[in-house]
């Protein structure tokens, strides 16, 4: 089956967990942390730490508990909780 990661199509095996599929293909930096913008990757592999939260089909999901699915679209850029300062709202 095939998934798309940041616009690139990958062949994956049915039954693969997304975090393992990413790691096996050398994608270890999955997102940046919200305050420092520091690179982060999968850490606990058991759904606790949230470091592998990436965007899967437009939704934030933990890669370590997400089974790959044919046609799945994965976005690492901008995934997870990192948020830029917002325009519009004036701070007092």
């Amino acid at each position: 089956m095939r998934i798309t990661v940041d616009g690139v199509e990958w062949r994956v095996e049915p039954g693969e967990i997304l975090s393992a599929a990413l790691l096996a293909r050398g994608r270890r930096a999955l997102r940046v942390s919200p305050r420092r913008g520091a690179p982060r990757g999968a850490f606990c592999m058991m759904g606790i730490c949230q470091e592998c939260a990436v965007t899967v089909d437009g939704r934030i999901r933990r890669a370590c508990v997400t089974m790959v699915r044919d046609g799945m679209v994965v976005t690492l850029q901008g995934a997870g909780p990192a948020a830029a300062p917002r325009p519009g709202a004036a701070r007092s």
Binding site: L30, F43, M45
Partner: peptide, 28 residues
């Protein structure tokens, strides 16, 4: 779940928990 006592650089990609490593090896 795993306890990791923080040290400088522990947040770098490529640093994984021992239990996490076990899951990668045994399960995946």
């Amino acid at each position: 779940h795993e306890r990791v006592v923080p040290f400088p650089g522990w947040t770098l990609p490529g640093v994984v928990g021992l239990a996490g490593a076990t899951i990668l090896l045994k399960s995946h």
